[in-house]
């Protein structure tokens, strides 16, 4: 399996990369960590005319913290994220999810931007971006735009990112540390490091009395894109669910709410199985998040 011929250019700046992409007229591909693109080239599922290598652009690597958000540059390696104290402290959900992403060799090259741009419906990083209301920055040679994760993913391996645009960074809004927040992440896969059959991410905020005041629940592998389970979030946020009844209420509500999901049946699992484990994984993620939030009294 050898890739079809292509030209190669090494971009030295974001501007240069976007210029190459514009000149490629839709036939250029961005080479970041290469953990998805290189296999697709060798299987000839991708046949770009030119590869724009962005690995040498220093502005595309690093994690920055400001008053309102954590900004992660697109070409930051997954290993760097996993080892980052900023990620561990402010984005524990991302840190948890990253342990499920591939293996150390692939994380040493694989980038956060690459996972988002590839948009596999079962991959962990898009799921976390969706659960945490991240915003994704895209640059074009003449303009740039910032897209909420809820609008970024269009379908399996499809996003709003145009072939002439470069994904430059992702912004995760900071949660106020005074609130009682907890997160949970669970997934089921055939082997550790494989793409998930189903993955579930939860972020729960409790008030002083232990009632849920905010909830974000997202599932991967149950539709063409990762999905937010808004009905479940609403149920969690609705008044009357106290600390003590939260868990049993959840247990009753989940199967009914998950009826709305549209997973596929394939050689790995049936749609029905995916739905059933989605309910279980969502419950486990919510439970972990609640337990953690209870312990996090400011």
């Amino acid at each position: 399996m050898k890739s079809a011929p292509f030209d190669y250019v090494l971009a030295k700046s974001i501007y240069e990369a976007t210029r190459y992409l514009a000149e490629g007229e839709g036939e250029a591909a961005v080479l970041a960590g290469g953990q998805t693109l290189m296999p697709m080239l060798s299987m000839r599922m991708a046949r770009p005319s030119v590869l724009v290598d962005i690995n040498g652009i220093t502005d595309l690597s690093g994690i920055e913290e400001n008053n309102t958000a954590i900004e992660i540059k697109a070409c930051t390696r997954q290993t760097e994220l996993l080892n980052s104290p900023i990620v561990k402290y402010h984005l524990p959900l991302l840190a948890q999810a990253l342990t499920f992403v591939g293996h150390s060799q692939t994380r040493n090259r694989g980038t956060i931007g690459g996972s988002l741009a590839h948009a596999d419906p079962a991959s962990e990083i898009p799921l976390v971006a969706l659960a945490l209301d991240a915003e994704i920055c895209l640059s074009h040679v003449e303009s740039s735009r910032q897209i909420p994760a809820t609008e970024f993913f269009l379908g399996p391996m499809m996003t709003v990112c145009e072939p002439t645009e470069l994904l430059v960074s992702v912004h995760f809004p900071l949660t106020k540390k005074e609130s009682r927040v907890g997160t949970g992440f669970h997934e089921m896969s055939e082997r550790h490091g494989d793409f998930a059959l189903v993955a579930a991410a939860a972020k729960i905020e409790l008030d002083n009395k232990g009632s849920c005041i905010d909830a974000a629940i997202a599932l991967g592998g149950v539709d063409g894109t990762p999905v937010r389970v808004t009905a479940l979030e609403k149920k969690l946020r609705s008044n009357g669910i106290s600390d003590n009844t939260l868990e049993s209420a959840m247990e009753l509500a989940i199967p009914e709410i998950l009826e709305d999901l549209n997973p596929v049946s394939d050689q790995h699992a049936t749609a029905d199985y995916r739905k059933r484990i989605a309910a279980i994984l969502a419950l486990r993620a919510i439970n972990d998040a609640i337990t953690e939030a209870k312990g996090n009294i400011a």
């Binding site: 080479l31 290189m38 296999p39 060798s42 293996h103 060799q105 040493n108």
Partner: peptide, 25 residues
């Protein structure tokens, strides 16, 4: 295509898959 690890090498000291890198890189 990046699945088996038989092609692992150290790239500036870091283990990576050599089938998922171009020689130019």
């Amino acid at each position: 295509h990046g699945v088996c690890g038989a092609c692992s090498i150290l790239y500036d000291g870091t283990p990576v898959r050599s089938c998922s890198l171009l020689a130019i890189q």
